[in-house]
């Protein structure tokens, strides 16, 4: 993938497919340690220990349309090639926690890219699910909650184009604020 934000969009699809009512997406950047942590945490159906072992292997998938699952192996590789690390913890009936740590000064570090487009897409296309997005740089952070937006919208779908564009613009502003100075 050209941007980590595309991996995040893809990995979040697994949470949605696992029936997670709430998925939390966290991106924390430490400019001193030169590390970036991406976490995708869901309360979906979870996996057995054996499944967790298997999903890190590109030849495993529970999908039926194609023999191999590529999403997790691609994300894992993106992290490990920077000298970072990748973990999945999961429990059946509880949920799944995927974490990838990147060394941002590695020449193999893929840029984060357009996280705002990723989040607005995920949120708008999955009205029936809730998402929390937290982005931090050193000691500054912001949090976005789709449930709060839904409350304001009072029945207007998140997939309305004007709403989707507002979410993206809103996140852009918050992100710019974070990276100021």
């Amino acid at each position: 993938m050209r941007e980590l934000s595309l991996n995040v969009l893809d990995i979040a699809q697994n949470s949605i497919a696992a029936g997670a009512a709430l998925t939390e997406i966290v991106i924390r950047e430490d400019t001193v340690k030169k590390e970036l942590l991406i976490g995708i945490y869901d309360n979906g159906r979870g996996m057995t220990e054996e499944q967790v072992r298997n999903v890190q292997d590109p030849f495993f998938t529970t999908r039926t349309t194609r023999k191999v699952g590529m999403g997790i192996p691609l994300f894992k590789m993106a992290a490990e090639q920077t000298g970072g690390r990748f973990t999945i913890e999961s429990q059946v009936g509880v949920g799944t926690r995927v974490e990838a740590l990147f060394k941002t000064d590695s020449i193999d570090f893929t840029p984060v890219g357009d996280m705002e487009a990723t989040i607005s897409t995920i949120v708008s296309m999955n009205e029936d699910k809730d998402f929390i997005y937290i982005r931090s740089v050193d000691d500054r952070e912001f949090k976005f909650s789709s449930a709060e937006i839904k409350q304001i919208l009072d029945g207007v779908p998140l997939s309305e184009p004007s709403v989707m564009m507002w979410i993206e613009g809103h996140l852009k502003e918050q992100t710019d604020e974070l990276f100021k100075n």
Binding site: L6, L9, D10, Q13, T118, T121, S124, M125, P161, M165
Partner: peptide, 23 residues
């Protein structure tokens, strides 16, 4: 289509362009 292959091939900007043009 938003499977891994769709996302890798550029589904996100396509969805965004659709949305923006419809608006």
């Amino acid at each position: 289509g938003m499977a891994t292959c769709g996302i890798a091939a550029g589904a996100r900007p396509v969805l965004k362009a659709l949305t923006e043009e419809v608006e």
